[in-house]
Design a protein around this nucleic acid. Structure first.
Lengths: 212, 212, 212, 212
DNA sequence: AATGAATGAGCATTCATTCAT
DNA sequence: TATGAATGAATGCTCATTCAT
């Protein structure tokens, strides 16, 4: 097996193991076992356990940012862009499930400390791109101008990330279906309040009573 | 200081430390430091690090289940029950932020393995109670009968759990306000499709086109 | 046993072990064995193997420099100063035999790299002090003005350091005797060449006063 | 390249590396790097790291012993023999600087343990030859009969070995000049005390009284 | 002859846990 | 109750050595 291929294998195995057990709970031995290698042999390919994690982190996050940029660059309507961004998020999540599983459960900030990684920066960039999508909708008058963009963004992303816990590729719903439901769900919530909600009094009643 | 009080102190300190660093990354020494105690002294109150974690886990989850049961037992309308359950979830989340922080990032299943804990069971119970709320809404004809209850439940809870990442008690929005937004958001999405959505064609258009 | 005392014990044991086997060849286990401790226990007192070495290095070298400074500050004649410096060197060598044994065989420069240690600087200072002694003799016209100070200094010190290989405290000659022989040896070689050694009254005067 | 030549290259590279880093601190990888070879390839020529060291040790020491034997076999006067032996020692030292650098800093006794090497024996032989030179001088009445032969021998050799630390082939003094200075230095110290020092009574008094 | 992948024993270090005081 | 010294198992990592190609 070529060095390249072996290296890829190792990173994939590590991703699985780190996701299952968590980075700190996982042992290098576990990664070696996953591959049927001796743990010492891993160090022919990697330098440290931390670098192994770092190597896992870079790709997926950057690809996601890039994909979001592409969607933003299109001429689609805001609602459609949001739908696509949600879909894109879910898709990347599924495609790099191992990585995002690690990303969500670990505090990866320590990776930025010693090296050239800038995970935190990437996350900030990603958030800013989402905010652009939402702002475009507000500017176009199709999203509620009153909404708090960061909160809404976090709410939607949080909802998407939640799929990590329950979505199974072999389950009854394809990822597109989930994306469609989420998008509809979100878009409903984002409709300008003065317009569409004129008739629908119930929701406001409910929420007001919820503090009672 | 009484044994009881000291014990409580230790568990609180452990909760903070485990949340900050993660259970596996945290050391008993860190917990001792948090308290200004020597690490050996902790063992006068706890038996193992794992039990320390276990002790943290039981209370919050059980209280949450109990609170949900109470809400279910009321005679409120389904939409209102949902609102209250969301609010309750968010409130417990904030009140036991340390615990839920641990709960979300760690794989706590290993706790069930060796002892009388039944975290997994508690979680199943909690999920079932949420499902009841949603079912009541469907039965009453106010929630979309077509919805997949487990998916919707997970989506809403995922959205709530997402607050962990961004909600700050000293931020611009009180927890009630977040809860109200989330509830409105969710209720909008749950309206029976044939009724309330009759006019709203846009969402469906969007989601259908999103696959193109 | 007090922490202080235990710590001292550990450093002494390490000195012995490092001298016997060399720093790199010695294992932390060896140091632990020397003390009847478990190797993990050492880390209750030390931080790393390298720091253990560093701790060994500082004291003796500094004491030697200080002692040389004291001798230089006296009003003794140059020859007598040289005699005393040789004696001092030999005495410190014997008293910190373990340390100097390590010092001579290892390349300790790596210690300066990461930390506040400045072994190389200390050595330079020590050399400079010796050179002062020799220069005073030249200035006073009692040491050969033609000599190359650094070479002579290195030759004498080399000779002294050579005692490491063969001198035994329980051997037939006390350290003072060796020192006296070395001093006489050196002083003979340092007599001004032009003064044509013929009469050579000075040496006897000098060496006799050296015991005063 | 012939096997022989490659082998020689490897031993030379190892000598350089071992001298620079010390045998234990040096890695087989370092030796490979020095040659631009892969470390696995070395094992086509050597059997173990220890044997590599062993191979370095044998030649120089044996040549030195042989050279000393030749000088002893001449009819030169004792003082001249001593001068030549010093010169020879310094010259071999310089010519096999790598080896002697290793020899001086490492405890090479472990090499004798497992194999046919007899380094310790060679050293003993070499010392004995030096002692013969000194004894001849005493017998001829030109060296101080009172001297302790082993001590003097060790002192002179120690002085010579000290050159390792400071002598540079490209420095201001050729090896011969150093040798000449050392020889004069030593011969001065070896003059019979009763004869040449007739006038200088004090030194002898001192050294004699020092044993009292 | 040389490569480079793999091995496996060994080492420094960490850390939960125990226990005498 | 609390301390702090000690334990010992575990872990990340290194490195001499082997071997198929």
């Amino acid at each position: 097996m070529s060095r390249k291929a072996r290296e890829a294998e190792i990173y994939e195995a590590a991703a699985r193991v780190f996701r299952r057990k968590g980075y700190h709970a996982a042992r290098i031995q576990d990664v070696a076992d996953e591959l049927g290698l001796h743990k010492g042999s891993l160090y022919y390919y990697i330098s440290t356990k931390e670098d192994l994690l770092r190597g896992l982190v870079e790709g997926p996050m950057q690809r996601m940012v890039a994909a979001t940029r592409e969607i933003l660059a299109t001429r689609h309507a805001p609602a459609q862009k949001l739908t696509r961004v949600i879909e894109m998020h879910l898709r990347h999540f599924q495609e790099s499930k191992d990585f995002f599983g690690i990303f969500l459960r670990e505090d990866l900030d320590f990776l930025d400390a010693n090296a050239e990684t800038d995970l935190r920066g990437l996350v900030r960039t990603y958030d800013a791109l989402w905010d652009e999508v939402l702002q475009e909708g507000i500017a176009a008058g199709v999203f509620d101008a009153e909404m708090e963009v960061p909160i809404v963004r976090k709410a939607i992303i949080g909802m998407c990330n939640g799929t990590y816990t329950w979505f199974r590729a072999d389950g009854p719903y394809p990822i597109q279906e989930i994306a469609r439901q989420f998008a509809a769900f979100a878009l409903d919530g984002l409709r300008p309040r003065d317009a569409a909600r004129a008739a629908a009094t119930t929701p406001s009643d409910l929420s007001s009573s919820s503090t009672a």
